[in-house]
Design a protein around this nucleic acid. Sequence first.
DNA 1: TTCTGTGAACACGTTCACAGCC
DNA 2: GGCTGTGAACGTGTTCACAGAA
Lengths: 214, 214
Amino acid sequence: MTPVPPATVARLPIYLRALDELVGRGTPRTSSGELAALAGVGPAQLRRDLSYLGSHGVRGVGYEVAHLRAQVAAALGLTRDLAVVIVGVGNLGQAFATYVQDYEADGGQGFRVAALLDAAPDVVGTRVGHLVVEPAASLEDVVAREGATVAVLATPAGVAQEVADRLVTAGVRSILTFAARVLRVPDGVDVRSVDLARELQILAFHQQTRSATT
Amino acid sequence: MTPVPPATVARLPIYLRALDELVGRGTPRTSSGELAALAGVGPAQLRRDLSYLGSHGVRGVGYEVAHLRAQVAAALGLTRDLAVVIVGVGNLGQAFATYVQDYEADGGQGFRVAALLDAAPDVVGTRVGHLVVEPAASLEDVVAREGATVAVLATPAGVAQEVADRLVTAGVRSILTFAARVLRVPDGVDVRSVDLARELQILAFHQQTRSATT
DNA sequence: TTCTGTGAACACGTTCACAGCC
DNA sequence: GGCTGTGAACGTGTTCACAGAA
């Protein structure tokens, strides 16, 4: 019933944010042109994307903001809150933990930071926001206790695969990793990778071609 | 002379890392099969991607690791070091500054953290690694002084557009932003966005469809 | 009319399968 | 024989342009 293409899924969060912007302004109705401009895409693409979620606009009029926001949120599965476990509370893990806790506090739906884990004894026991860091050794217990199905991997690259294996065995089905490693996971487990060096290198490529042309 | 498709450019950093792995092992030669496995792609895709950089393999034999690594690095423009300015030294900015400084120390080529900037008076003057945080007010001076063409935007979302405008005016041509905002920039300026809430929401979508199917 | 929803055309990306060279 | 490089087939994603509903 829902063959939403991956490219469309990747844009839904952007539309959600654009709709929140309109909600904040108190705008009750919008058009594909306005929404597309806010999202930084073309109007045709926006209409095509929304069409995969069903018809929620009115021809000749546009979209009702509140209704559409609810549809997009529902399509993304943000109706219930998923428990997220963060492994690795170094700079990045801490930044991410704070980020998601702020997101929750802001009324952001869909997630809840359930636990923080780290292997370093001097980090275990420290607080980040409203949570205390627990030892990495109890990873399996913590995942089970919280019923966590989503994990954020912010450990050193060297242990990332090992930690991922343990997370998957413990029941995690989605991993967001910051480690610059290709993770091997079984079918049915979803991995998304945020690789900072990679982003910079892609920018470097474009600078080079630009200076070559100019 | 170099119409390397965007999708290929996005994978070159992964190949570069796989090649570094082989260099580390002391492997002198490799094949599309081995390299593709390390990079997590198919062999045909790897060969196609490399073909855009020219022919650097030997039929019936494979690729010489050191040579290929140099070719990929050159294609990415990692021969000279670009000066990177980081604006916003909160949790994320700090994490990123540390990350890139470690990358440099590790022999990672292509970048050098040139300066850190923040608007908060109590952050200005603090050290992160080998750099002291400077006031955001002197953004233009700092970009000029360092000849920075790359910036990382890790400020609150509310000021992201304004800071981006100032960066571009000051001469920055590539921006990596962590702010959950669509940035408007003139043609010729390249923006890449890392959006953490978006990544989690995409994971949430897939969890939902998976539980629906199962 | 106005603006959505969508068939059809197009562009881009991936994979297959094999010709070509070591 | 073995592995690269690539034409051709295929699949995915984007855009155009218009039919259709309010």
